[in-house]
């Protein structure tokens, strides 16, 4: 039991971090970022390149992932999303753009890094063992701790910094924020960059444990969508809750339902659909986003 809970928390911390980036982008610009999973994979490959091929320390790789993805996010917002949002009749049009970007990133990853599974050497060795009741490699503990630290840092940033306050205002009411003198374009760009950066950071963290490959992008996006649906789209607390709930359900489900074959995700999906039929806006979302 302790093992299941620990696994759930470990998964949840990573998931919450992915969901945070997605929900931030959604709340600021009303864009469902289909390319989020691909950004995550890209971040993983950047860390791999820096650590495994250039031989630099892991932390440098992580920072490189964050910087590369942040710059990429900012450019995507400025040159792609902004003009399309301004000119299209229906705001759903951004979904085509987001899907196009997802394909594009897939193609770029394929050309730059190839299709092989890649990983980096363990950051710390050893396994934490508590009476055989709870077994956890130290590097997983380290990654989970880093993820939690990043989540806390992100919340503090959104809560107390000037930029964070501007972005929260923007998420609440775009027009009102603009009237109060918030530079909407600038903060949309920062928000998108921040969301992409979070995706890249998770990729960088996970490349040390599970490795990374080209095919992970799409399924990661779907999982991230699930999390923000559970918690409520566009709400930061919801994304964190959704991440931890999904991590926990996955961990518990894989243990309890193992006897019935590979049905964990089927059960999770069906539960989610019933839950959403009763509470369409998720746990903490505003009705109709």
């Amino acid at each position: 039991m302790e093992q299941i809970l620990a696994n759930g928390l470990y998964l949840g911390a990573q998931y919450a971090l992915i969901a945070l980036g997605l929900t931030l982008i959604f709340s600021l610009m009303n864009v469902l970022n289909f390319a989020h999973g691909q950004m995550y994979v890209f971040g993983g490959f950047v860390t791999y390149t820096v650590v495994a091929q250039l031989g630099l320390p892991f932390i440098v790789g992580l920072i490189a992932s964050a910087v590369v993805l942040a710059v990429m996010g900012a450019l995507i917002e400025k040159f792609l999303f902004r003009p399309v949002i301004r000119r299209s009749k229906r705001d759903e049009s951004t979904m085509l753009l987001a899907a196009g970007i997802a394909f594009f990133l897939d193609a770029v990853i394929l050309l730059l890094f190839g299709e092989k599974q890649r990983g980096v050497p363990k950051v710390v060795d050893g396994v934490f063992n508590w009476d055989m009741r709870l077994i956890m490699p130290y590097d997983r503990i380290l990654i989970a701790a880093l993820a939690v630290a990043l989540i806390v840092g992100f919340i503090l940033f959104m809560q107390y910094s000037r930029t964070g306050r501007a972005m929260r205002a923007l998420a609440q009411d775009r027009v009102a924020a603009q009237l109060m003198g918030v530079d909407v374009d600038r903060y949309s760009m920062i928000g998108f960059a921040l969301g992409a950066m979070l995706a890249g950071l998770v990729g960088g963290l996970l490349v040390t444990i599970t490795g990374i490959n080209l095919g992970m992008g799409g399924p990661t996006s779907v999982k991230a969508f699930l999390m923000i649906m559970i918690g409520g789209a566009g709400v930061i607390s919801g994304a964190i809750a959704g991440g931890f709930i999904l991590g926990m359900m996955e961990s518990v489900g894989l243990t309890l339902l193992a006897a019935y074959g590979d049905v964990t995700y089927l059960v999770i999906f069906v539960t989610l659909m019933i839950f959403l039929a009763i509470r369409p806006q998720g746990l903490m979302g505003k009705p109709w986003g």
């Binding site: 959604f26 009303n30 469902l32 979904m95 779907v222 969508f225 699930l226 923000i228 649906m229 789209a233 074959g261 590979d262 049905v263 995700y265 089927l266 999906f269 069906v270 989610l272 659909m273 959403l276 039929a277 369409p280 806006q281 998720g282 109709w288 986003g289």
Partner: peptide
Amino acid sequence: ILRLRGVYFAMVTLVLTEVARLTALA
């Protein structure tokens, strides 16, 4: 699910595709 709107409906239908695939497997 048609009570949902906007991205909520979009995401639920996306999940529906996965549900169909997993059901066909099971």
